[in-house]
């Protein structure tokens, strides 16, 4: 009896996603977490010579900056390898020989890389928050010792504790970290789309890195395009192409201000998140479209 295969099977996608994650883990992608740990812990030790306010600011700057760099790099480099590696090892043929539609295969790959990014962000955030918590408690313990030794008044102690708490963990850090994840997810879906028509992993990486840089200037290009400044006849059409074709990555670069204490409101976070999902969805659909007819 011939059983009809479902058009869209979450179970199959999950299986392929999990398998992709396993493959990436075997490639020792998680080793970068060791570098991150060394960076954060080393940074916190080195910064002990700075004043307490500076120390926390540096720790947050370096940790969130490193988190952003690492997630973007993983998103681009790991995703760029997925399809060429599967083609080289002929895994693609084995999978697609079964009743698995190509769009499910692409979805599985995307899910795998998103799982990798999510685990990475969780581990990095956990490490960063633990170091921040230790630093906070050390600073408060120092202030308490000064209070016990009657070097500072109770009011000074309370002011110091409030300052330390304001300078260390604030709830704003969490949406900031989530925006880092959304940005990396967007980059991975973009890279996956490029890899569906690219001839090699190197080409995909270079294209994605170039788009990464252009994407951060997209907002500037858009502003100039819409402002009507036209020094040459080709300026505005060129800016329009940049604004329409490339993603606005600046919209997902909020951590610089989050570190400085600027709050992300729920509304703003949701709008940013929805834009990110919109990008991921569109790049996924385009990846499916481009991959659907690719000769393997």
């Amino acid at each position: 009896m011939n059983r009809q295969s479902p058009i869209f099977s979450p179970t199959r996608i999950w299986a392929m996603g999990w398998n992709t994650l396993t493959e990436l883990t075997r490639l020792k992608v998680f080793y970068f977490l060791l570098v991150f740990a060394l960076l954060v812990i080393g940074n916190s030790l080195f910064l002990a010579k700075l004043s307490f306010g500076e120390e926390f600011q540096m720790l947050k700057d370096v940790s969130l900056g490193a988190m952003s760099i690492f997630t973007s790099l993983i998103a681009i480099l790991a995703t760029a390898m997925l399809l060429p590696k599967d083609l080289e090892e002929r895994t693609t043929f084995t999978i697609l020989a079964k009743p698995v539609p190509r769009y499910e295969y692409v979805a599985g790959k995307l899910l795998g890389i998103l799982l990798l990014l999510a685990i990475s962000v969780v581990v990095m955030s956990g490490l960063f928050l633990v170091v921040l918590w230790v630093q906070e408690h050390n600073a408060i313990a120092d202030a308490r010792a000064a209070l016990d030794a009657h070097q500072i008044s109770a009011e000074d102690f309370n002011t110091t504790v409030a300052s330390v708490q304001r300078a260390t963990f604030t709830s704003n850090l969490l949406p900031g970290i989530l925006v880092i994840f959304i940005k990396s997810a967007l980059l991975s879906s973009l890279t996956l789309m490029i890899s569906t028509f690219a001839s090699s992993a190197i080409f995909t990486m270079l294209m994605s890195i170039a788009i990464y840089f252009i994407g951060h200037l997209q907002a500037t290009a858009r502003e100039y395009w819409l402002s009507g400044i036209d020094p040459h006849w080709w300026t505005r059409p060129a800016l329009a192409v940049v604004a329409l074709l490339f993603p606005d990555l600046q919209a997902f670069s909020l951590t610089d201000e989050v570190v400085a204490g600027t709050a992300i409101s729920l509304g703003l976070f949701l709008q940013t998140g929805l834009l990110g999902l919109f990008y991921i969805g569109v790049y996924y659909l385009l990846a499916c479209f481009l991959f659907s007819n690719r000769e393997l």
Binding site: R222, L244, L245, D248, Q250, L254, G267, L268, L275
Partner: peptide, 25 residues
């Protein structure tokens, strides 16, 4: 992609304004 760009453009302009008024960029 160009059509998608045209669709998202107003959203991005709105979001950029919102982010700037909230102190970002």
């Amino acid at each position: 992609l160009l059509i998608f760009g045209g669709v998202r453009l107003p959203l991005e302009i709105h979001l950029a304004q919102e982010q700037q008024s909230a102190g970002f960029h």
